[in-house]
């Protein structure tokens, strides 16, 4: 791509969510979302490949529908209450429609069909941007309107997305689709706690960003796109491959690792609010995700030599040094003891 065009696209990709986050006026928030959507489409469609074009068309259609639905609910709210303030959107019908539109932008459960397909059609770095940076603006808007959201609706949506994130990932062999379903399940955890405590939503979001970034950078470095190449990827960087298992277990939320921290706090908060059945259900549903994380770890790490293997090995290329990866792996696996500090800061 032309470097000038690339610079403009990247800067507006950064600028769009910034406008949305800092704005107090609904129209400016919508403009930020639109700028972001207009900037990401050329990046998705950069490879002139049928799959990239299809992914960008699917992304464009869902995001355009979601943003026009958001604008419709904004204007309904204005016609009924007469003001554009984000935190004051009190009309019930428009807040329900806003929930639908923002969850469509996020890729939550009933509106999730675009997410795995879009992620499958793009490169790993675009997957990284789509699963982390693109979630920032809609999630911030959801957190800003959380006074007027419907708790039972959000809890239903999040239980559904945990379920679909777990069940959908079971049948996949492509790592990026598995990461998409894991993203759906994590977003379910975030919206579960949204109306009860926004601080925990933020903490879950930060943890999710750290874990997903580490996982996708590992996938990028090992150049594994599917299970069958994950099996032979240990020849490229054996230590990184071993660490990938820790990272996957952290994504699943096993106790001494970082991913356990938000799940623990969310379950505690749900129990405090007498939602014991919902807490139990969500804890059980996270086992579905654990299954496919363990399957990736089994293929990539647990069946390593000295076992006899009968598959052909990959070429040992020159080892690329990524100085940021050790830091990110440490952050994504050993951050649980820092939890009291988080609780004091937030």
């Amino acid at each position: 791509m032309n470097p000038h065009a690339n610079m403009i696209i990247m800067s507006s990709l950064i600028l769009g969510p910034m406008i949305t986050i800092t704005s107090n006026h609904w129209i400016m928030a919508w403009v930020g979302l639109e700028i972001n959507m207009l900037a990401i489409i050329p990046l998705i469609a950069k490879q002139h490949h049928p799959r990239a074009i299809e992914a960008s068309i699917k992304y464009f259609l869902t995001q355009a529908a979601a943003s026009s639905l958001l604008l419709f609910s904004i204007i309904n709210n204005v016609w009924n209450t007469g003001q554009f303030d984000i935190t004051q959107s009190t009309n019930t019908m428009s807040s329900t429609m806003m929930t639908a539109a923002l969850t469509m932008k996020l890729g939550l459960a009933p509106f999730h069909y675009w997410l795995p397909e879009t992620l499958q059609g793009t490169t790993t770095m675009m997957t990284l941007i789509l699963t982390t940076w693109q979630k920032l603006a809609p999630l911030t808007l959801l957190m800003m309107i959380n006074q007027s959201l419907n708790t039972s609706l959000l809890v239903t949506l999040s239980l559904l997305s945990m379920m679909i994130g777990g069940w959908g990932g079971l049948n996949q062999t492509q790592l990026r689709k598995i990461m998409a379903f894991s993203s759906i399940a994590h977003l379910g955890w975030m919206t579960m706690i949204l109306t009860l405590s926004t601080k925990l939503t933020l903490l879950t979001f930060y943890t999710y960003i750290t874990l997903t970034t580490t996982m996708l950078l590992t996938i990028k470095l090992l150049e594994t796109n599917k299970m069958s190449t994950a099996m032979t990827s240990w020849t490229k960087s054996p230590m990184l491959n071993a660490m990938m298992m820790l990272n996957l277990m952290s994504l699943a939320g096993l106790p001494p690792l970082t991913g356990f921290m938000p799940k623990w706090l969310i379950l505690q908060e749900l129990t405090k609010n007498h939602m014991t059945i919902i807490a139990t259900t969500s804890a059980i549903l996270s086992l579905l995700s654990l299954f496919f994380y363990i399957r990736i770890a089994y293929y990539s790490t647990i069946t390593l030599p000295p076992n006899m293997t009968n598959y052909s090995q990959q070429w040992r290329h020159k080892n690329q040094q990524k100085p940021y990866l050790p830091l990110m792996i440490i952050t994504s696996s050993m951050l649980t003891p820092i939890m009291p500090t988080f609780m004091m800061i937030m």
Binding site: I41, A45, H48, I53, E54, I57
Partner: peptide, 10 residues
Amino acid sequence: SLLVASSRTH
């Protein structure tokens, strides 16, 4: 523009 791009492939 996406319509044009898709007309080349689909």
